[in-house]
Computed example of a mutant assay.
Amino acid sequence: MKCREGCGACCIAPSISSPIPGMPNGKAAGERCIQLSIDNLCSIFGDPQRPAVCSAFEADVEVCGSSSDEAIKLLGWWEQMTAA
């Protein structure tokens, strides 16, 4: 599956513990990444400062569903199921 351009769910729903430019402590689950544009595009996509966890994420129906809203719900569910 390819990412849905402008979805942004993976930049909102999960927590990211790695430093992000502008967010040195990462971000909490449900918090919008500071690098996510108003058009829901990553402003540091392809930049070496982008966290490895973000670069490694691959869209999949199991986590992205069939819409951005569904992706937010599914990624949120995965976040809760895997939280330590």
Results as ranks from 00 to 15, higher is better:
Asp47Thr: 00
Met23Lys: 02
Glu5Val: 14
Met23Cys: 00
Gly26Asn: 08
Pro51Asp: 07
Ala52Leu: 08
Cys54Val: 01
Pro24Leu: 07
Ala13Pro: 01
Ser68Tyr: 04
Gln49Glu: 09
Cys64Asn: 07
Gln35Cys: 06
Cys11Gly: 07
Ser37Met: 05
Ala83Trp: 00
Cys33Ser: 04
Ala59Cys: 14
Ala52Trp: 02
Ala84Tyr: 08
Pro24Lys: 04
Met81Gly: 09
Glu31Ser: 05
Gln49Ala: 08
Pro51Met: 03
Glu58Arg: 15
Gly30Met: 07
Pro19Leu: 14
Ser17Met: 10
Ala84Thr: 13
Asp60Trp: 01
Glu70Asp: 09
Ala56Leu: 11
Trp78Pro: 00
Ser66Thr: 09
Glu79Ala: 10
Leu41Arg: 15
Trp78Ser: 09
Glu70His: 03
Met1Lys: 03
Met23Ala: 09
Cys42Ile: 01
Gln35Ser: 05
Lys73Glu: 15
Ile38Asp: 13
Cys11Trp: 00
Phe45Met: 11
Gln35Ala: 05
Pro24Ala: 06
Gly65Val: 02
Ile34Tyr: 05
Phe45Arg: 12
Ala59Val: 02
Met23Thr: 01
Lys27Asn: 07
Leu41Gln: 14
Gln80Met: 12
Ala28Asn: 12
Ile12Tyr: 02
Cys10His: 04
Ser15Leu: 02
Ile12Ala: 07
Val61His: 11
Cys3His: 10
Ile16Leu: 13
Ile34Glu: 10
Gly22Pro: 11
Glu58Lys: 15
Thr82Glu: 09
Lys73Val: 11
Lys73Met: 14
Lys2Tyr: 04
Val53His: 02
Ser17Lys: 12
Asn40Pro: 08
Arg4Val: 11
Ser37Ala: 14
Met23Val: 03
Asp47Leu: 00
Cys33Glu: 02
Lys73Asn: 12
Gly30Asp: 09
Cys42Val: 00
Gln49Thr: 04
Leu41Lys: 15
Leu36Lys: 10
Pro21Phe: 08
Leu75Met: 12
Val61Asn: 06
Ala84Asp: 14
Ile72Phe: 12
Met23Glu: 11
Ala28Arg: 13
Ser66Tyr: 04
Gly8Ala: 12
Ser43Gln: 13
Cys54Pro: 01
Ile38Gln: 12
Arg4Cys: 03
Ser66Trp: 03
Ser55Asn: 13
Phe45Glu: 11
Leu75Ile: 09
Cys11His: 03
Ser66Leu: 05
Glu58Cys: 10
Ala29Leu: 10
Glu62Arg: 13
Ala52Asp: 13
Gly8Leu: 05
Arg4Lys: 12
Glu58Thr: 14
Ile38Asn: 05
Ala13Asp: 04
Glu5Leu: 10
Pro19Asn: 06
Ser67Met: 03
Cys33Met: 05
